[in-house]
Simulated assay, not measured.
Amino acid sequence: MQMDFGNPDTWSTAIYFWIIPAVLGDAIFPPIPSEMVLITGGALSAEGRANLFLVGILSAAASWLGDVVVFQLFKRRLSHILDRWTWGRKIHHGIHEAIAKAGRSSTYGTIIGARFIPGGRLATSAAAGIADVSTPGFNLCAGLGGVLWATWLVGLGYFTGSATRLPFWASSLIGVAVGLVIGAVVGLIVTRRRGDRSPVDEPGEAPGTGN
Rank of each mutant, 00 (worst) to 15 (best):
G94R: 06
G109H: 01
T135M: 10
I111N: 01
S105C: 06
A114M: 15
G119E: 10
A98H: 05
A123V: 03
F138A: 12
W85M: 13
G109Q: 02
D132L: 11
I99N: 02
G88A: 12
G94I: 02
T135L: 14
R115S: 06
S134V: 04
I111K: 02
S106C: 07
W85F: 14
I91H: 00
R104C: 13
I91C: 05
Y108H: 02
D132I: 05
E97G: 08
I130A: 11
D132W: 01
A102H: 00
A126K: 00
Y108V: 05
T107A: 13
G109C: 04
N139K: 04
A128Y: 05
I117H: 00
A114H: 06
H92E: 10
H96L: 15
N139R: 08
S106H: 05
A100F: 03
L122W: 04
A100M: 06
G113D: 05
I95S: 08
D132H: 12
N139D: 14
H92M: 09
T86Y: 07
W87A: 13
R104E: 11
W87C: 08
W87M: 10
H96S: 14
N139F: 13
G113E: 04
L122M: 15
N139T: 14
T135V: 14
N139P: 02
S106D: 06
Y108W: 06
I111P: 01
K90E: 12
A126V: 01
T124E: 05
G88K: 07
T107L: 09
H92S: 15
P118F: 12
S105I: 06
I91L: 13
T86P: 00
H92N: 14
G94F: 03
G94P: 04
T107W: 03
A98Q: 13
I95R: 06
G94N: 13
A127V: 14
N139L: 15
I91F: 01
E97Q: 13
V133I: 15
A123W: 07
P136W: 03
K101H: 08
A126N: 01
G120P: 02
A114P: 02
S105N: 08
T135W: 09
W85E: 12
K101E: 12
V133E: 05
K101T: 08
I111E: 02
A102C: 14
R84Y: 12
W85R: 13
I111D: 02
G113P: 01
S134M: 02
G109N: 00
G120R: 02
T107Q: 07
T124S: 13
S125Y: 07
A127T: 15
S134Y: 00
T124V: 15
R104Q: 08
F116D: 08
I117T: 14
E97S: 09
I112V: 15
Y108K: 00
H93A: 15
T124P: 03
R115H: 06
S125F: 07
S125N: 15
F138V: 11
S106M: 00
G88Q: 10
G113L: 15
A126S: 06
R89M: 14
G94Q: 09
T86S: 11
V133S: 14
P136K: 00
V133G: 11
T107E: 12
I112L: 15
E97V: 10
W87S: 08
I91Q: 03
A100Q: 09
G137S: 06
T86R: 10
K101D: 09
A123N: 05
A98M: 09
I99M: 12
G119P: 10
S134E: 10
V133K: 04
